[in-house]
Design a protein around this nucleic acid. Structure first.
Lengths: 249, 249
DNA sequence: CCCCTAAACTGGTATGACCATTCAAAAGAC
DNA sequence: GTCTTTTGAATGGTCATACCAGTTTAGGGG
């Protein structure tokens, strides 16, 4: 890593002085997006309204939105409003994405890695999750499997659900690592057109798995959570394997 | 992440929309930074002056600077001016390095994650490693524990040894992920001056652990390899925990 | 020469206005 | 009634001005 020397504090989370109002506003909005209160595909309230409800000036709101726009969370159209694009931003490693896209065996590896990590995360979430976390977890579950949600956002919903579990671990580090892996995985899947893996049967299975995982966490049962997560990701991995047999790379 | 290519152009897709003044200003400033007219370490002219020379309002200049700040080119300090940080943008995972450096609990989390991942890697290496891999593995081991090696390179040697195990897994994806984690960990340790964790006893223990891991891989014993690696990283984790008790963060 | 103060910077925020575009409801034409 | 057109409200983008909050720096004591 080239820039690990002086770490000049990128710009964001100063962890020490979140003094600037615009940053606070950005954090608040980002939180609502991450929590699923604002959903991808929806539109943000108007800048003037946001300014009023948050009791800051429109200038600060605009600065916050500008930050989130350059990070890939939002897109604004003059006169049309501000659309929420993603609940996770976009800072993935393109080199890794290329690798995963170019070879299905790499994709399987990635899924395997994800399996070991998230299994650990499920166990830890079951012991560390707060009541607030569980509330958000259930909300994310309902949204991810709401039949009224547009098909195109299904991947994002699934992404957010898993990230919510990561958040419930209480480890911001895990959250970062997992986010990177998910970004790479999703970008690769997008380009590989594996989207057709979604079907009624697959969706139903996923929903059952998600339910089992979340409820295990909710009742603080680490063993059950770990088992449920392992079961889930192993099934997805098997799917990848069978799919890669059909279409040779 | 692992110092890959900068992947800009997230904001707007080139739908012939260079209309926004702020974006034009940002492009002009960015060009001067890339061309070396504005050098890293220097300070940008004041916002008011920039606005005047470019014949736009200060609002537009601020929007442009906000964009460049978010991308890691600039850093502004209230009253102190705007400093040019880089002519190439930043790796987004400097944020993670900051997190690890700022809190020892985050460091422990990172080590825990590393533990689960490398345990998996050891098992996989034991089944997948080629003869060539094992030769390199033993070489790395000898170098890492050669008493003639200078003390200051110990961390780097250890790093390389573990990366070699990652390489023996045959998964380029795992290699990337592990490299990123190690980079972050090492950068954080460097700044936290945890280097003094090296001592005669600690070194001897590490050497024994490394020996056990590598030989288990060499004889293709997945169970032993997994156990040895888990044992090793758990010991290091315990060390972090005891150390963090002594010096509160 | 050093230390301290104060004025002159700097970036950050607030307010109010106006423009350009979009979108949807109201008005009109058939 | 249905379709098209018009119109106006709402939205993001820009501007000007003023003031706040830190930093830097130039003067003056000591």
């Amino acid at each position: 890593m080239p820039s690990a020397k002086k770490t000049p504090a990128p710009d964001d989370q100063e962890t020490k002085r979140p003094k600037r109002i615009a940053d606070q506003v950005a954090d608040q909005i980002l939180e609502k997006i991450s929590d699923g209160i604002f959903l991808p595909g929806d539109r943000l309230p108007g800048e003037r309204q946001l300014a009023e409800t948050m009791e800051v000036s429109r200038v600060s709101v605009r600065a916050a939105l500008q930050k989130l726009k350059t990070r890939g969370y939002l897109r604004a159209v003059q006169g049309g409003g501000t659309e929420i694009l993603s609940s996770t931003g976009i800072d993935m490693d393109t080199a890794m994405t290329d690798l995963v896209r170019d070879s299905i065996s790499n994709l399987r590896d990635l899924q395997e890695i994800r399996c070991t990590l998230e299994t650990w995360a499920a166990r830890r979430a079951a012991t560390n999750a707060s009541d607030e976390d569980i509330k958000l977890l259930r909300l994310a579950y309902r949204q991810a499997h709401d039949p009224r949600r547009a098909e195109k956002y299904r991947a994002d919903d699934d992404h957010r659900l898993h990230m919510m579990i990561g958040r419930a671990t209480g480890s911001i580090i895990y959250y970062h690592v997992m986010k990177m892996l998910h970004d790479v995985l999703q970008a690769a899947l997008m380009e590989i057109r594996f989207n057709n893996m979604s079907g009624p049967n697959f969706d139903r299975m996923v929903q059952e798995h998600h339910h089992a995982i979340i409820e295990a966490i909710a009742v603080r049962d680490p063993d059950a959570a770990e088992k449920a997560m392992s079961n889930h990701l192993q099934a997805v991995l098997d799917f990848f394997k069978s799919a890669s047999d059909k279409q040779a790379t």
